[in-house]
Design a protein around this nucleic acid. Structure first.
Lengths: 219, 219
DNA sequence: GTCTATACACTGATAGAC
DNA sequence: GTCTATCAGTGTATAGAC
């Protein structure tokens, strides 16, 4: 099961409605992630959910609304974690280790979501504005400033090398996500399209990235 | 003008044909990159090229064929460069500096191409197989092995820290490309959607990434 | 090579019965 | 809440004149 998001959110619904709605969301998630908003077909979603098109429109009036829901859930699964993990009060190096461990595990569980988010956001950046408006908790307000304060203190204390929070965050996220979203290219070009080897590569890379990031900033 | 690819490739064509075909490719590139294969409309491409739909089908019989051409050109612009730049016989650190300088410049000139490639490749990885079959020179055959030989020599000579060519390449490419393809997210979350600030960030990051990568492997 | 007009299939969405 | 049947709109592709 993808998420019990609906169960938590609409707790007033009957068991039956939850199941149908959840089935739709699961099916829609698969199809939208593979085909994108414009490539997805309502018929395919209906088939995969074991219902018909009319019922799809009964629950979510339009394709766009269904898409928005799916996108929002996917986004909520990946983005707020950044804040949770980087917002604690541990030392920077511990934060990085914790983040890499948890984020790579999340990526391993949902490898297609980041590519889905990036693709659709590049086609229509406006989606993000709507989501952030609806979900205040997604706003990373002042996370960067607070993180930067901590970093500069550790720099002064001689624990880590000088670096800005923005550059550090960008590095950490890039090294975690890019090998997953650009898998078709890297696997094709560097690994001669050997799926198995790339899986091993990604698995071994987990410890490597952690060590690499930490050593790169260690004073 | 996007590319004089056609001019170079089909030199037997008349001036008139070149212009129309080039106009189509330029228009198709814009529309496909923004909307994707399934989101693009032949009508929009025709309008942007200043012709009509029928003429579009006269030059490229189907939408798919036109798309493949556009994708192939975009891919050829970004991928073979990796081989060119990493395949020279300079020391590793010089290679990295050279690569980052040139690739970030290329990215600055064509910021939407990597996202386009990644998006479409995730939807249909088969495209890559077709392209590589048609363009032997794109194959990075043995590049990684040769690069790894060089790296291990420099490691033994005490010039750089131990690292595999695959991990190093992945790091370099990730840090260059990800901040561009994930711009909507990073700009939205870290930069409060301030476009100007993100442009400055990317500009300043050029020197930062170069230094960061080199310092991270320096023995 | 370039145009207008049109064929033909598909898709999102709705109406209405149960 | 779920179904069948259907409509209206849109999109790719082609026919045929110039």
């Amino acid at each position: 099961m993808w998420l019990n998001y609906i169960v938590n959110t609409y707790s007033f619904m009957t068991e039956h409605e939850m199941n149908t709605e959840q089935k739709i969301l699961d099916a829609a998630k698969d199809v939208f992630q593979q085909k994108g908003l414009t490539g997805a077909r309502m018929q395919e979603i209906a088939d995969k959910a074991g219902i018909n098109k009319a019922l799809l429109h009964y629950y979510y009036r339009t394709k766009d609304k269904l898409f928005e829901k799916v996108f929002e859930i996917a986004f909520s699964l990946f983005i707020p974690r950044v804040k949770e993990m980087m917002g604690s009060d541990r030392p920077i190096m511990e934060k990085i280790a914790f983040f890499v461990d948890n984020y790579l595990e999340l990526l391993n569980k949902h490898p297609y979501i980041p590519g889905f988010i990036i693709s659709e956001l590049n086609r229509n950046p406006q989606i993000l504005v709507n989501i952030i408006e609806k979900n205040i908790q997604i706003k990373q307000n002042r996370l960067i400033e607070l993180l930067d304060d901590q970093i500069q203190k550790e720099v002064k204390a001689g624990i880590i090398k000088p670096i800005s929070a923005k550059n550090l965050m960008t590095n950490v996220i890039s090294l975690c996500i890019f090998p997953v979203v650009a898998r078709p290219i890297l696997q094709g070009i560097i690994f001669d399209n050997n799926k198995k080897e790339y899986d091993i590569f990604l698995k071994e890379r987990k410890e490597f990235v952690k060590d690499y990031l930490i050593n790169s900033i260690k004073a």
